[in-house]
Design a protein around this nucleic acid. Structure first.
Length: 506
RNA sequence: GCACCGCUAGCUCAAUGGUAGAGCAGUUGACUCUUAAUCAAUUGGUUGAAGGUUCGAGUCCUUCGCGGUGCACCA
């Protein structure tokens, strides 16, 4: 490895001897991108030359094919690949000598006109070439790319360079989020930013990350949800608010959980959960159309169709249909805990926990096509309004597709006394040692005492949504930089640090 | 946390317990329409780490590290 770096540093020195300093280069006037040229000149006849139009293109060289007095480069910019054709007799001896020093990984700007080679490839007939960035490290194999999953995550920048599909996923992710904003904004919502650093991290059941404020000398937690602050905005009369933001949960890491993840939470005054359901399915269908041009898509071995309306099934009804279980067995704590054994599940500490486990085992496996499951028991829905005709259940639904939970929504509880009692119950569970239960946010209860209009709210896990829309089975594949345990100090990854005894450049 | 799998050259991968190899990349040379360019020559290794068994360990055993997958935990 050190000699590979040394060889590249030698090329750098050679460039400088030719008066070219790749790191001294500043801006480059780009007038065309690869995909634009490919489109514009798609009709150029064999060996045709569009000599009247000069274009400047810039990007990274990913392949070099020297052929004596001619060199072909594959230049990649953010839109794709374009071939450069450099001929000694055209650019001159000295520029050609510089071109010969360019190697895979270098950043180059080139000006010339488009022509079609004998082999039929559109190329830039280069008139002038500038080396505007230098790669001092060898890139992975040009054909196999970078396969090692660990290295792909740790050095995502290399992954992005040599594995174009990775970049495509990230671009789709960006489009999904942008399109979500557009869809939501068009319906009169304000995007707001609520605090990440909190003295009380509540609004969900999860253990927070804890930190400390030096200025205030107090402990702080990173938020586990945006819910309670967005509802404060509703109390304040903003009526329609949402936030697309990073949320942090100090829990297990696996294919569907990253410690920091992106969640959309949205609240609409004067809506109920039924309004939210319609909004939700329209949003999903819209995003599916945006990404796939239609409502159907492949996920794993399945085809998922986001055609509205989605199936709707009651929470208890689903248990009955898929497991033959009755309301009384589920809503009675003792009976429910006993049911676990019938399904070979380990004992649960609480009734709520048992219900969740049973749902996962009995119902979730059947939820392939988009399905709203509504009417969740109040005992697992501490922030949702009860159903008027069935106070044991709440006006809450979750949307599932491909066995994944995609969103969670309910008519918000706005009765401060009911909310206070639910917090008090949770405080007891917390005192009993359940670390997932957040401390009570009493100021939130105070806000409800000022009066909150009837409101519906929804949370959507953006990462999982992107997984679904991009057919990825690991959350790490839709995150640019998933959290990885740091390597031990004495390993320092591979290479470097010892090529010539100098530390890595700052 | 438990189990299983993986870790060999810059990258992708080989190697019955018996001299650590190939392709690409790199280096040198040839080549003025190549595109996984081609041709010739050539460099490159603490086999994740540390112990152990053995005449001999990439290979077997133990511990550890990192990753992946499943389970558990967790929305």
């Amino acid at each position: 490895m050190p000699d590979l770096v040394a060889a590249r540093r030698a090329r750098l020195a050679a460039l400088r001897e030719h008066g070219v300093d790749p790191f001294a280069a500043t801006r480059y006037e780009v007038t065309a991108h690869a995909a634009d040229l490919a489109t514009r000149y798609a009709g150029l006849e064999a060996q045709g030359r569009a000599e009247d139009d000069a274009w400047s293109i810039a990007g990274r060289i990913l392949a070099v094919r020297g052929q004596g007095g001619v060199i072909f480069f594959d230049l990649h910019d953010r839109t794709g690949r374009f071939q450069l054709f450099v001929r000694r007799d055209d650019v001159g001896a000295e520029p050609f000598a510089v071109a010969k020093l360019i190697e895979r990984g270098d950043i180059v700007g080139a000006t010339g006109f488009v022509f079609r080679t004998k082999a039929g490839d559109l190329s830039l007939y280069v008139r002038s070439l500038e080396v505007i960035g230098k790669s001092l490290r060898p890139l992975p194999d040009k054909w196999h790319g970078l396969q090692d999953v660990e290295k792909r995550y740790r050095r995502r920048y290399v992954d992005l360079i040599v594995n174009p599909p990775v970049r495509d996923v990230m671009i789709v992710r960006s489009r999904i989020i942008a399109e979500m904003r557009r869809f939501i904004d068009a319906r009169g919502f304000f995007e707001v930013e609520t605090p990440v650093l909190l003295t009380i991290a509540a609004g969900a059941s999860a253990r927070p990350f804890n930190t400390h404020s030096n200025a205030l000398d107090i402990p702080l937690s990173l938020r586990i949800a945006t819910e309670l602050y967005l509802k404060r905005c509703i109390v304040g009369g903003m009526e329609r608010v949402y936030e697309i933001g990073r949320t942090f949960r100090n829990e297990g890491i696996d294919a569907t959980h990253n410690p920091e993840f992106t969640m959309l939470e949205l609240y609409a005054a004067f809506w109920d959960v039924g309004d939210m359901m319609r909004f939700n399915e329209e949003l999903m269908a819209h995003l599916a159309r945006t990404v796939h041009g239609g409502e159907s898509m492949v996920y794993g071995d399945d085809t998922i169709t986001f055609a509205t309306p989605f199936r709707r099934i009651g929470y208890l009804e689903a248990f009955k249909e898929f497991g033959g279980l009755e309301r009384e067995q589920l809503l009675d704590a003792d009976a429910c805990l006993l049911l676990l054994r019938d399904f070979g599940l380990p004992d649960s500490p609480t009734h709520a926990h048992a219900l969740d486990k049973l749902f996962e085992r009995v119902v979730e496996p059947h939820l392939l096509q988009p399905t709203f499951v509504y009417g969740y028991p109040v005992l697992i829905s501490p922030l949702a309004k009860r159903m008027s005709d069935d106070p044991e259940l709440t006006q809450r639904y979750e949307l599932f597709a491909a066995h994944m939970e995609l969103s969670n929504a309910f008519t918000e509880l706005n009765d401060p006394d009911d909310q206070r009692r639910r917090f008090e119950l949770q405080a007891l569970e917390r005192a009993a040692g359940d670390a997932e239960i957040p401390p009570a946010d009493w100021d939130f209860v105070t806000s409800l005492e000022y009066g909150m209009p009837p409101t519906a709210g929804i949370g959507i896990g953006v990462d999982r949504l992107v997984m679904m829309l991009t057919n990825n089975r690991s959350i790490r594949d839709v995150l640019l930089f998933p959290l990885q345990r740091p390597l031990p100090e004495n390993v320092r990854d591979d290479d470097d640090d010892d090529d010539d005894g100098t530390p890595p450049a700052p």
